[in-house]
Computed example of a mutant assay.
Amino acid sequence: MDWWEISGNWVLIPQRPTAIVHFLGGAFVATAPQLTYRRLLERLALQGYVIIATPFVNTFDHAAIAQTVLQSFDRTLDALYASHLRRRSLPIYGIGHSMGCKLHLLIGSLFSTERAGNILISFNNFSARNAVPLIEQFSPVFSVEFTPSPLETNQIIAQNYRVRRNLLVKFSNDTIDQTTILTDLLQTRFPGMVVAQHLPGNHLTPLGPDANWQAGNVFTPFDAIAQWMRQEVYRELHQLEHTILRWLNPLARF
């Protein structure tokens, strides 16, 4: 299965699509999601999910980024319906990691769009001063904040977020995760519709290409060590993949 660049998005198209995933990555790794999240996204595609991964460059105006990535996604989706996808009724799910969660939350709150559900991994809603410590070095009185601010973002979600079905993932060793706050907000807004999962891992667990170790004609101790290391490195990512796929389709076998 090959990656395609279509209207500024990176796309994977399985042979028998069952649903569409709009993926948004973290602030500093979102410019090349087909590389930084390759293993995770290709695993989803193998299970029948069309992947549309939208790159973006971080700025202080997160609402503007949300609008831009939504417009970019819609252009690519229209192009796919005109060329590769015959069914126009495939459900659409949003998946976000870190800042990508905030963008999906803003999309679901500020703009008119249909989503069957959102998967929000390692939600991060820090202030600009905490997220960009260099600001204080330029000037101790220099005041700049993300738009919307963390407080405004929480208020927007609490009042306007319209995606009822959500999976929230928090990792056990993630010191910058703010999923607990988000869980409370969404469970209050949509009682019984929000699933919160705690998994082993850290903030970087969703990232990483799939490194395939090719053993030689004779299986050596080095091959055994390499395969063991690969299993350990991807054990936490595999649990994340399984959790996502089980939530998307509880009846699927994989």
Rank of each mutant, 00 (worst) to 15 (best):
M1I: 06
M1H: 04
W4R: 07
P14F: 10
T18H: 12
A19M: 09
I20A: 06
I20N: 00
F28R: 03
F28L: 13
V29L: 12
Q34H: 08
L35A: 05
Y37H: 06
R39W: 02
L40T: 01
L41I: 01
E42N: 02
G48P: 12
I51K: 00
P55R: 04
V57R: 10
T59Q: 09
I65W: 11
L70C: 10
L77M: 11
D78T: 14
L80M: 12
L80A: 07
Y81D: 02
A82G: 15
A82P: 00
H84W: 13
R86Y: 10
R88H: 15
S89K: 11
Y93C: 13
Y93H: 09
H97A: 11
S98A: 15
K102M: 09
K102F: 15
H104M: 10
I107Q: 15
S109R: 10
S112A: 15
T113F: 15
E114W: 12
I121Q: 05
F123H: 13
N124V: 15
N124F: 09
N125Q: 04
S127T: 09
P133Y: 08
E136V: 04
F142T: 07
F146G: 04
F146W: 10
S149V: 11
L151W: 10
T153V: 09
Q155L: 14
N160F: 08
V163A: 02
V169D: 01
V169R: 01
K170I: 05
S172Q: 12
D174K: 02
T175R: 08
T179R: 04
I181K: 01
D184E: 14
L186P: 06
T188F: 13
T188V: 04
G192V: 08
H198A: 14
G201L: 00
T205F: 05
G208W: 02
P209Q: 08
P209H: 02
D210A: 06
N212F: 11
T220Y: 05
T220P: 05
P221N: 01
F222Q: 11
D223K: 08
A226P: 07
W228Y: 09
M229I: 13
R230L: 14
R230G: 04
Q239R: 12
E241N: 01
E241H: 00
H242I: 10
I244V: 12
L251K: 10
A252E: 05
R253F: 11
